[in-house]
Design a binder for these strands. Structure first.
Lengths: 163, 163
DNA sequence: CCGCTTTACGGGTAACGTAACCATG
DNA sequence: CATGGTTACGTTACCCGTAAAGCGG
């Protein structure tokens, strides 16, 4: 009933993606045994079987597939929190927009145009060219893709999570 | 540059909400010193000052406010991952819908009506009454509010995060 | 001088790596 | 029989609590 740890989620995602404890351990830079134990403990903690494993095949269960998607989302949220906190503490925060998972990026130019009409918002250089370079990305993408436009007055506009 | 841990985020949120290390430690069921160390390590890890502290006052910095919001989002994502994995592994998964943070719940009946027209979806009992009981809640709410309708064919429809 | 945060130090728990075991195909 | 996941065990590292020190109002 206790809550999950980031380490558990990272290990789980590695195994779920590799479907092989050995390769997953190698990718994580660790030995197989602690990885195997961590997954076992995770399953006990959740009271749910995440993998069907024989010595020849590792397969995700239904609950495992659900957790894989949610674990990626949660890990992205943690990573984004750190990223944005570092950014907010930096000397010159800039306008920052993140789009994820099938959100229609086509509306963004209009939204930014509307933002640009705000008296407090100076039109930044390369505004439209920067914006047009932003494209939606899918949830399954491993590492966040950040694009920044040069509008130094706000820390960020929004973040949209779809999961 | 390493990533954050759930424990660090929980401790940070407690201090940020109490603005007092003593009360935060009490709320967390621990002593002040390890809490203080964890916050200090977190700040060093991020390279950002999160609190302005004198012996008489603890105050959030701008970066701290950013992290507070994102940390809540990330913690909710982790909690939701565990919750939904447990649910997916249970014997009889049900239709599950979560609404958060100012999402207009008024559209839900129409969406569920559309879902109900799917040949694979049987109309569950008390459908409309269950749905009408769902209301949006605000991001600041501490613990997730889950409402379940009785449609045993899907694990969940969606989760919407606005942050 | 009082309250609260921080540093110092010792103990316990938990994660890891190595080695041996076992099951499957 | 070979590949690969699991169990056993000793070690290391991290986190916590108690005690003492630093510092601001």
């Amino acid at each position: 009933m206790n809550d999950l740890e980031v380490r558990q989620l990272r290990y789980f995602v590695a195994v779920a993606e590799e479907l092989h404890f050995g390769r997953a351990a190698e990718r994580l830079g660790m030995a197989q045994p602690p990885l195997s134990r961590t997954i076992r403990d995770l399953e006990r903690q959740l009271g749910v079987t995440l993998f069907e494993r024989t010595t020849r095949q590792v397969k995700l269960t239904g609950a495992g597939e659900v957790l894989l998607r949610d674990a990626r989302t949660a890990l992205e949220a943690v990573t984004a929190a750190a990223h944005r906190a570092r950014h907010a503490g930096s000397a010159s925060p800039r306008l920052r927009i993140a789009l994820k998972a099938d959100i229609d990026g086509g509306l963004l130019p209009q939204i930014l145009d509307a933002y640009g009409t705000d008296p407090a918002a100076l039109p930044p250089p390369n505004w439209s060219s920067e914006v047009s370079a932003i494209s939606p990305r899918h949830c399954a993408t491993a590492s966040p893709m950040w694009r920044s436009c040069s509008a130094p007055w706000m820390t960020e506009v929004w973040t949209v999570n779809r999961c």
